[in-house]
Amino acid sequence: MDLRGNHTDRLSFNPVTIKLMIEVKDIEKSFGDSKVLKGISTTFESGKTNLIIGRSGSGKTVMLKTLLGIHTPDAGTISFDGRIYSDLDKDEKRALRTEIGMVFQGSALFDSMTVEQNVAFPLRMFTNKRSKEIMDRVNETLDRVNLKDANKKFPNEISGGMQKRVAIARAIVNNPKYLFCDEPNSGLDPETSIVIDKLVQEITKEYNITTVINTHDMNSVLQIGEKIVFLKNGLKEWEGNNEEILETRNKSIVEFVYSSDLFKKVREALLADEQEHHAHDNDKKA
């Protein structure tokens, strides 16, 4: 069943003819004397997993919070499918936010509610569905994130990976057009991280959501980075995809990607292999 069943009803235009996207133009943000974002422009398209990467302090969290409307940019515009956020009034902003799903770094589940109450929350809040319809929908969404038999448990009774799944279920249960994830892998083991990454990517494609993920996890970058924006000191240093990032000669991004010993060794092995291959070819030619 299409979880985005009522998606087109909300739109005043045909989503097939107009590409859904978030457009960021020259956004700047300062805190006191410290300029955190220095004129960043980019686009995040629907059906793609868009990643914002960078070292700690590069401005990626501020960028995500600015996209979400938690911070107001000092300059520049952010438009959601043509709707410029700063031009919207308070009610329109609230309405737009109901189209946004967010997965927080620490999951941010309501700890006084059970798993199913957490997932049902956006439906109870923003729809007029009956209880049975809500519960059907909740079960369907929990099934989609491969989470069964945890409906009646409280967030502190389930593992970190399960909490992330619940957070994803809560974020997608109301058919969002935009999904934001703030470091969805933080605190998870590598195996669970891969599962969460794949889940987010599958959901993005399945429901044609505009997904923006804030991460510094290189596994995620290589696995699901269909569009990658690399920030350095508040500037967009590079943008591309997970194939281009391995081939780029940009010094900053090479340093960032290969900062871990594991990736350094993989790169050295690849370069050695490449050199050997070249030498072999040259010998053949000779």
Binding site: I70, R94, M102, F104, Q105, F121, F126, F180
Partner: peptide
Amino acid sequence: TMRVTEQIDALEVMG
């Protein structure tokens, strides 16, 4: 505690 654990941010982001 809701503020510290981002639950209030979650409410705000939902609208």
